[in-house]
């Protein structure tokens, strides 16, 4: 059972990772853009248990760290996503008002996306990565939040269906 869930989840995340690197990254969006892989990770964490969310955050973080477009050290994204995914799942676990309401899920994911980016920048600065200008950074973070707010409602039904297939559950939203 565990292996099946691990296999299915791993396949889904790998597919979204490849789609992100091969397709979404080719497109240019004004004010930053969005990452379907990050949205998937945060959404998955929001509808999972804290243990599963932490594990998913770890695996997704490893994939993001291995991405050729990442400039930070290996483990950077891993650390941030482990913490953020666990936090999302811990705060929303058992609260059907949050998990059962699509609007709250979208807002959680958007807010988490912004916090993840800011955390990445701060930890990156502490680890010695050179950051761009403050204005550019601000535009990128706000733009990313905006695009996440636009794209998450489009991905929500598909992610929930995939989660149900992986965990043999049926989530009502």
């Amino acid at each position: 059972m565990f292996l099946r869930r691990f296999g299915v989840t791993g396949t889904i995340f790998t597919f979204f990772f490849v789609a992100q690197e091969a397709l979404v990254s080719q497109l240019t969006f004004p004010a930053g853009g969005f990452s379907i892989f990050l949205i998937l990770t945060l959404l998955w964490a929001a509808i999972s248990t804290p243990e599963v969310a932490a594990a998913v955050g770890f695996g997704a973080g490893i994939l993001l760290d291995l991405s050729p477009s990442t400039s930070g050290p290996l483990g950077h994204w891993t650390l941030i996503l482990v913490l953020m995914c666990y936090a999302i799942a811990f705060l929303s676990y058992g609260d059907e008002n949050m998990r059962g309401n699509p609007l709250s899920l979208i807002l959680i994911v958007t807010l988490a996306q912004v916090i993840v980016l800011v955390s990445y920048l701060i930890t990156g600065f502490l680890l010695g990565n050179i950051a761009t200008s403050f204005a550019q950074t601000l535009i990128t973070v706000i733009g990313s939040g905006f695009w996440t707010l636009v794209v998450t409602p489009l991905m929500l039904p598909a992610v929930i269906w995939l989660h149900d297939q992986a965990f043999d559950s049926r989530m009502r939203i």
């Binding site: 050290p73 290996l74 483990g75 650390l79 482990v82």
Partner: peptide, 26 residues
């Protein structure tokens, strides 16, 4: 769950340390 979280955080920090020390495998 907390144990798992600690393990994962320590693993992430370990990976960061390895990378900053310039391990070729990374």
């Amino acid at each position: 769950s907390r144990l798992l979280l600690v393990i994962l955080i320590v693993s992430a920090l370990f990976l960061i340390t390895l990378d900053l020390r310039g391990v070729n495998v990374i």
